[in-house]
């Protein structure tokens, strides 16, 4: 495979895996949110925020993919002539957000479900409830940071 194919595969992996994780996380938290809103529609705003938290990984994956595509010139319509080594480097740089995005979004979704349970019973504890899934976000941000730094550091 040529370098550009590896680089494109990396960008695709970032979007696909981080997006899959977010879809699962937002989906499962959405089920829980719907359960609470069925009984108490007044809690809609609070549970919606908790449902959206696992959605950020998908955005991070998209961001990394944009940077990677921009780096290899695909966005401008003039793809760079990449060596296999450079392509593999870009592919490797995309992996942190791809893998951590997938895993963290799933776990964040489950944590959001648990926090929605807190809001269902004690809505005044919303602030504390939001912190639990937000903690999981830390690791997605770390992965995003490394992916961005790595892609930017690769000479093309």
């Amino acid at each position: 495979m040529s370098g550009i194919v590896w680089a494109l595969a990396g960008a695709a992996a970032a979007v696909i895996f981080a997006g899959m994780g977010s879809a699962y996380g937002v989906g499962v938290a959405g089920q829980a949110a719907a359960g609470v809103v069925t009984e108490d529609p007044n809690k809609f705003a609070k549970v919606l925020i908790l449902q959206l938290l696992p959605g950020t990984q998908g955005i991070y994956g998209l961001l990394v993919a944009f940077i990677a595509l921009s780096k290899i010139g695909l966005l401008g319509g003039s793809p760079a002539d990449l060596s296999v080594t450079t392509g593999l480097l870009i592919f490797a740089a995309c992996l942190p957000i791809a893998v951590v995005g997938l895993v963290s979004a799933r776990h964040q979704g489950r944590t959001s479900v648990a926090s929605i349970g807190i809001v269902a019973k004690k809505p005044e504890q919303f602030g504390k409830a939001m912190l639990f899934p937000a903690m999981v976000e830390t690791y997605a941000i770390l992965a995003l940071l490394i992916s961005i730094l790595a892609i930017n550091a690769i000479p093309v």
Binding site: A32, G35, I116, G117, A120
Partner: peptide, 17 residues
């Protein structure tokens, strides 16, 4: 485990009463 997510959340809201 996940198939009861909606049901459990609804039950959580009902436990208040």
């Amino acid at each position: 485990d996940m198939q009861y997510t909606y049901a459990v959340a609804r039950i959580r809201a009902m436990e208040v009463s």
